[in-house]
Design a protein around this nucleic acid. Structure first.
Lengths: 217, 217, 217, 217
DNA sequence: GATGAATGAGCTTTCATTCAT
DNA sequence: TATGAATGAAAGCTCATTCAT
């Protein structure tokens, strides 16, 4: 069940090679961009604004990104790829389906709490991509979705049933992604507790229903 | 437990009265605007584009909306108010907490299926509002959230416990709204069945956990 | 030396007769318009703004004025005509040239203090008129200028010299109009005293030079 | 009696440094803008019109001016500052109060004849500025006014009286500025002679009264 | 007379992007 | 690599004016 390699970024930016020496600077640029996009949306972020926030010239940005959309794509692709890689490793660890589900939930939430801006951009600005980069990003997303669905299927039908998805498991996975992604709209660690706690709550609700959430209070 | 009346729109635009005769036209404008915003986002929709789609002049739009943002606000406010009104009526009907929860789920999804564009705009363009209209829209949202949380609380702790919210019920409500709102990202009636079916699935999962979803297959 | 009648307004607005019954309303409109134009300039005043300030509909204004420029013209023409008529009467009164000069100065300043807004519009928005109304307004102005120049000539060269203008009298008249019209830029009755006092000061300075102004202190 | 330095422009636009290399270009832009504004007023001048007249793109203008109003402010501030600097130098030269007054009159008129457009903009478009730049421009104006008033005071009360302003000297200065500034409305070198001649005429009228103007004919 | 609705033309400003240096 | 200067395209919005009622 080893995953195929993810298509390289340069598929979409064949014109420019980013050498290791500038990797660190590139990361800084993307991080700042993520913060600005997360705050007001991709459209609202302007290249000028970004250049000012970075203390560099507007034209200078175009040494790192072929276009504003390329910037968005790089941001999304890298983030998604990192999330998927993490979750695939987590899913490979042995354990009951229930244990693995909890690990996926918590892993997702932890990734969220460490890369809030980046994940927010991935979650809400997918449609801002053009058709080609969209397809590339979509592909990773789909793999992540299948990963979740296969674990959910084992929870529902038992590990003996293999990882065959069913209508139930597919729908449930969509509900679960809704729960997970909606967290951007409300989560505040000071008010709601740690993401690990949230992960346990979700697990209880998913495994035992609403009444089961009383146990984890 | 009768709800206080919703603050009238004119709180924010006291200068303009929309008379009954133009109500119909206003509805048409808002409906088309909702479609365009839902498609590409509020920022991407241009007033010119809207005017063309409506077959009227650009300047003519400004007879109905003080600004582009005012348009967004009117759209959100009306839609939210209609949704809230519907759901409050539904919640008032007698029945066990479980029955009332299912009715709320289904009611939300039905509203979604009848006003997909409008609800999408409400769900994803809230942050495009300025501070003052944001607060007004937020207020309705909060009331809807409380309505859901009170029913969820009764499901968890039993009807005898009253509608007192707890940490569990509040968090669970947030998870539920995530499930409900995420539907914009994937739902296709042809592939996923009717919204009533989805509503039953969600109910089963919420009441009995993932394994409980097998029953409604 | 009786002055020829002033060309009737209808030369420029042949399309519409203003009947006596609406005369009063027309005056109100022009007065409000004068106030708004005086405040921010003709260009900055909008017909909407005016209609709002008057509590009437935008379209309604066009029953009284063929266009925005027509409004300006009517305002200027009426005001100038009234000023000229007053000053011609004043100049006809008997007296030494010096006395008649003082009367003209004071008359001008009194007219200013009674019709500040209107006169300001006449003084600073002449160029906002199109060529045809400009010429009509210019004509009255020129008559007023000649009236002043003839009196100034008598002051300089003695009443025996008749009213023949000279280079001196013409230039001096221009300087005097400068003094008079610049008053819009600074005059405040609370700080500078009555216009009659100002008139005496100007007379002293004009007749006796700067050192002569000490007498009227 | 050395004057304090004039507040630098950057007080209001600290973000943009105009380097010496672009100074020449900036001057060209402002000069053309002055011509267009002088012709039809600030409101009537459009940025498009200016860009066309300069043979550059509309957007390019915004490299030099943060906004249309900023353009007006820069124009006014620079012109006023230059006028004030010149007149302060002139006033410092030794001589009787009468000689110094004449030098100020002639200096003002010469500045006018060399920078007609710019000075016209300063004189008639002050109110087109917003409150903050207005205050800055007002400040320079006031200093110029005081300079004139102090010399006028010495003419009236003799040099021994120092430069203490009196009601007479203050008012007389306002009349003088009226005479000087009104020149925009009528002066034509071909018809009225050189500005130096006008300056002498004004001096004679101011020192000896209307009858004294015969001497300079 | 009066007005709500509508519009063509035009305004200031912003944006992503390019290019000579 | 880096940047100041420049620009085509387009955006939101306003204005004087018209016209059916």
């Amino acid at each position: 069940m080893s995953a195929p390699r993810i298509a390289p970024i340069d598929d979409i930016r064949p014109s420019r090679l980013v050498r290791p020496s500038s990797q660190k600077k590139l990361d800084r640029l993307l991080s700042k961009a993520a913060a600005l996009i997360a705050k007001n949306g991709f459209n609202a972020m302007t290249m000028r604004e970004l250049s000012t926030a970075l203390g560099m010239s507007l034209a200078g940005l175009y040494h790192y990104f072929a276009s504003k959309e390329d910037l968005l794509f790089q941001l999304q692709y890298r983030t998604f790829a990192a999330l998927l890689e993490q979750q695939e490793k987590i899913a490979e660890q042995p354990g009951t389906p229930e244990e693995r589900l909890e690990r996926l939930l918590t892993g997702h939430l932890q990734f969220y709490s460490r890369h809030t801006n980046e994940l927010k951009v991935c979650t809400f600005e997918l449609e801002s991509l053009g058709p080609k980069p969209y397809k590339l990003a979509e592909e990773i997303r789909r793999r992540y979705y299948r990963l979740m669905a296969s674990v959910v299927a084992q929870v529902i039908d038992g590990p003996a049933a293999g990882a065959r998805e069913t209508r139930q498991s597919r729908h449930a996975s969509l509900y679960i992604f809704g729960m997970l992604n909606w967290i951007f709209m409300w989560y505040d660690p000071a008010r709601h507790g740690s993401v690990e706690q949230i992960g346990r709550e979700m697990r209880d609700m998913l495994l035992h229903g609403l009444k089961g959430t009383k146990r984890s209070g």
